[in-house]
Simulated assay, not measured.
Amino acid sequence: MALTDEAIERIKEMIVKGELRPGDRLPKEVDLAERLGLSRNSLREAVKALSLIRVLDVRQGDGTYVTSLQPEVLLDTVGFVLDFHRDDSVLALLEVRRILEPAATAMAAQHMTDAEIVQLGELLVSMENAKDLNQMIETDLEFHRRIAVGSGNPVLASLIDSLSAPTLRARIWRGLTEEGATDRTQEQHRAIHQALASRQAEVARSWAAVHVAGVEDWLRRAL
């Protein structure tokens, strides 16, 4: 079990046993890490993941709280995050995305305007300078959305957009649990942008395929 998954499992146990109830504030990071026998880094990543799906609420300058959801809903949500990567449907959706997105990226190299490509580069800078995980995810989604729209084919763009939400959790979870995944993602984004800027459609297609295949490969290994 990955360290982040283990940390989440420990927090789940605290909810199951009633040690943490909706509305409760989590103990200080250093105290909770020692209590659970975890590193502070693992605990911190677990809190990030759980706050992303709104099981925990991180209040700047105040602390981290269990949300006011019903306990059974909380447990279902945590269980979903722990078990989602065993769902073959996510893998099937990633396979479809691997087919469609490289094609859209190659088309975008031919159809996007110079101004749109410049704006895409500015979005990359925002992504790399993101202050938190939520901001990084938002800019990541927008990066892919703009490329799909830039293909010039609204039907293809709509299909790709429909695959974004169902595969988002897998992409987030990989970024949280696989060492170096975020850095590789940013490198691939830069390579895609450079290929678009130089109007190299087949290079853009290849980098997009590598980019999507990375998540798919991680999920296959997780399965």
Rank of each mutant, 00 (worst) to 15 (best):
D83R: 15
D83C: 07
D83V: 14
D83G: 14
D83E: 14
F84Y: 11
F84W: 13
F84G: 05
H85S: 15
H85R: 13
R86Y: 10
R86E: 08
R86M: 11
R86F: 11
R86N: 07
D87P: 10
D87R: 12
D87I: 09
D87S: 11
D87H: 15
D87V: 09
D88K: 14
D88W: 12
D88E: 15
S89H: 12
S89M: 13
S89T: 14
S89K: 13
S89V: 13
V90M: 06
V90W: 09
V90D: 06
V90N: 02
L91T: 12
L91K: 07
L91M: 09
L91D: 11
L91I: 07
L91Y: 13
A92C: 08
A92D: 13
A92L: 06
A92Q: 07
L93E: 07
L93H: 04
L93S: 11
L93K: 09
L93T: 08
L94R: 01
L94D: 02
L94N: 05
L94V: 07
L94E: 12
L94F: 03
L94C: 01
E95C: 03
E95L: 05
E95Y: 02
E95S: 02
E95I: 03
E95H: 01
V96K: 07
V96A: 10
V96L: 14
R97G: 05
R97S: 05
R97I: 01
R97A: 05
R97L: 12
R97F: 04
R97E: 09
R98P: 06
R98K: 15
R98T: 10
I99H: 03
I99R: 08
I99S: 04
I99C: 02
L100F: 04
L100M: 02
L100A: 01
L100V: 00
L100Y: 00
L100K: 00
E101M: 00
E101N: 01
E101Q: 07
E101C: 03
E101G: 01
E101S: 04
P102S: 03
P102A: 01
P102V: 00
P102R: 00
P102D: 00
P102I: 02
P102N: 06
P102F: 04
A103D: 09
A103M: 10
A103R: 14
A103I: 14
A103G: 03
A103F: 14
A104T: 03
A104C: 04
A104G: 04
A104I: 02
A104F: 02
A104N: 04
T105L: 03
T105H: 08
T105W: 08
T105Y: 06
A106C: 05
A106P: 04
A106M: 03
M107K: 12
M107T: 08
M107R: 14
M107C: 07
M107H: 08
M107P: 05
A108S: 06
A108D: 01
A109N: 02
A109W: 00
A109C: 02
Q110M: 11
Q110G: 06
Q110D: 12
Q110H: 09
H111R: 15
H111K: 14
H111D: 08
H111A: 15
H111V: 09
M112Q: 03
M112C: 02
M112V: 03
T113R: 13
T113C: 09
T113S: 15
T113M: 08
D114F: 11
D114Q: 09
A115L: 13
A115D: 15
A115Q: 15
A115V: 12
E116D: 14
E116H: 05
E116M: 01
E116N: 07
E116R: 10
